[in-house]
Design a protein around this nucleic acid. Sequence first.
DNA 1: TATGAATGAGTCTTCATTCAT
DNA 2: CATGAATGAAGACTCATTCAT
Lengths: 217, 217, 217, 217
Amino acid sequence: MFHEFVTGLRRPGRPSGAARGPEQRTRLLNVALVLFARHGIVDTTLGEIAREAGFTPAMMHYVFKMRDQLLDVLIDERFAPLRASLGTPLLGNPDDPIATITQLTQRLVDVAGEYPWFPALWVREMISDSGLLRQPMHERFANASQKASLAAISRWQREGQMNASLVFITLLGITLLPLASSRLWRDEPARCNVGSEEIARHAIALLVHGIGPKQPA
Amino acid sequence: MFHEFVTGLRRPGRPSGAARGPEQRTRLLNVALVLFARHGIVDTTLGEIAREAGFTPAMMHYVFKMRDQLLDVLIDERFAPLRASLGTPLLGNPDDPIATITQLTQRLVDVAGEYPWFPALWVREMISDSGLLRQPMHERFANASQKASLAAISRWQREGQMNASLVFITLLGITLLPLASSRLWRDEPARCNVGSEEIARHAIALLVHGIGPKQPA
Amino acid sequence: MFHEFVTGLRRPGRPSGAARGPEQRTRLLNVALVLFARHGIVDTTLGEIAREAGFTPAMMHYVFKMRDQLLDVLIDERFAPLRASLGTPLLGNPDDPIATITQLTQRLVDVAGEYPWFPALWVREMISDSGLLRQPMHERFANASQKASLAAISRWQREGQMNASLVFITLLGITLLPLASSRLWRDEPARCNVGSEEIARHAIALLVHGIGPKQPA
Amino acid sequence: MFHEFVTGLRRPGRPSGAARGPEQRTRLLNVALVLFARHGIVDTTLGEIAREAGFTPAMMHYVFKMRDQLLDVLIDERFAPLRASLGTPLLGNPDDPIATITQLTQRLVDVAGEYPWFPALWVREMISDSGLLRQPMHERFANASQKASLAAISRWQREGQMNASLVFITLLGITLLPLASSRLWRDEPARCNVGSEEIARHAIALLVHGIGPKQPA
DNA sequence: TATGAATGAGTCTTCATTCAT
DNA sequence: CATGAATGAAGACTCATTCAT
């Protein structure tokens, strides 16, 4: 301390004495998640994450040896579990596509409520062609889940005009996309507060009978 | 010219040797558009654009004094016109919302057909919270168009369960999002080639009567 | 210029207007060579080379895309030619080993006179087990040269007590090593100025008849 | 202890659990010596030494307050004693230079056999101009030893063509250099196993009568 | 019109070092 | 005795930007 005073130089490597333990890791992951959702993965520097969490960039490397590793950890501990918790997306009651999809819709919105970073991150990094989550997540979930879902859809398809290829992306388009950009209209004047439930309701309504006038019972 | 000879980078079809005046600018804008759509605006370096167009990075600054200016020009000369060409989105036949929206849907898909960079760029940079087009485009089109659209919707809303705030983003979600990520399912096995028309058809069907079984005539 | 004065900030990227042309590359290579010889390859930072040459570190990357490339270029344009100019080391008069080796000795010293970085660099980076030149140079010169030399030695070996494996490294030990560390004794008091010729003379004398008293003719 | 169990890093033969007091220090010094010889002093990180010894980097600072101090300790406890054990290098029988030098040669090789890190480290860090041992070791041994040796040589010099300045470095060049780079030729095909004794024999032979044909008795 | 040469600022990464425990 | 947590400084590399030609 005296040394600092005299030389005006903090000696290198003095830890700041903040709270410690493995909570730091968790904390950094949380912050990373938020910032990744906000600015995109590639455009978030380790420094930003560190600063936001109250640390120095060097500490990011103390915890995650490499930048890539941060993403790996995030995938392992956050994305994959979340994805897994969605189950095999469209494998519900084979005879009632509407019910199945409705359920999934609700689940998507619920998950988004629980993990606010989910929609933006998913739209950005899973759907976009150059999204950083796409490839890795595909490798983990492609086999089991994907095929089952497609099989389910194919069956339904025969009865309706559903397109196996489109139904899934469309579903995301009416749930995650609005959720991700909810701030889009929130800023505008005369804005009714569009919340998750409203999005869910709207999505389901759309799926069930389009935007036309209410179906007569 | 020597450079072209060596690298073979010149695209066929560009007249060589002729005075090419401001075509360079146009060319750079085109390339920028494509790359911006592919990797995102922030993640595309001026050097990439330059190289892809057969120029040096320095040329980018010769033409667009600053990086930001490239975006400004792009907005002025590409995005705004395109946006303008969509008209006041939901101002069609006041008595037939379905027809109005259907028309818009088709127009969106058509425009996407004409300007392949449109869907990806829009999803990425207009809808996302930190999208670089959002703010500037908003400033230009917020007033006139937006209000009119909302007014139109509000009226319809009373009759159906349409949500004024959600209908627009949802519309994008079932057109531009699938268009933007069409490569997403194209890779998968047993993949039917999902084209624009299919997306349009699917979107309209969804809007008109949901994914349920075909309505009895 | 005005801007600088007012803001106190040099705007980024202002080139310093120094002499230009491909001489810079040559200059940087020269400086690199000297510093590599002085501090070792790994321990010379690009910044040191740049500063010594009157540039910024960033310019090193302008010229040599990667650090490794600097070494590659150096090998191609400096080390390999030098090595090549030594010819097949021990392929002289098959009947007169002494003459052959004497000649090589002289050549080594001559080359060291022409390229002052040669001895230190060779001892450090070619002979040492973790020397950075060893592997790459080996790949280029192992086949042709090496085998011929060894063959030559083997023959001589039968007549004298020369050890094929040792003669070469020993030769370096009595030429390049003294040359490399000539500053070692130059600092000492009462030091006669040991120059190249002296080293050559001494090495040859040692090879011819050891350090014993002068042979009677 | 837990760490050891998990990583399996503990070398066999080290008594565990017993009070190990200052052995840690010894152990760290040993490891440092080996790694310094292998990669050079500057290029060996404290972390590498620590890990190789089964400790954490922080432990290095616990034991050697500063990096420089590690070197100081090494010099005091390893290099200086070793150097001292070589005695005043060339102060043997004043009337028989050959015998004196031969003896020293043998001693060098013997020491190298006992301390495998010796040759490489010496070549790297004592002889090279920027070697980290040069300056400090010089300060300790310059006065006494050096002068005596030179005096001895000067006398011999008058009778033969020995060069006082060169004889010492040359001697190192034909002993330590081959020893240091013995892996150099060990890889090559048709390789006789060049061991220490061979190097000693070869060096002495060279000193006594050069590489020429065996002297007639 | 267009480019080559050069640079400042910023990011990622490593490492010695510190401190509380 | 020994470590985990944390950091400052420095190096490699990228990129937008500048200027002279």
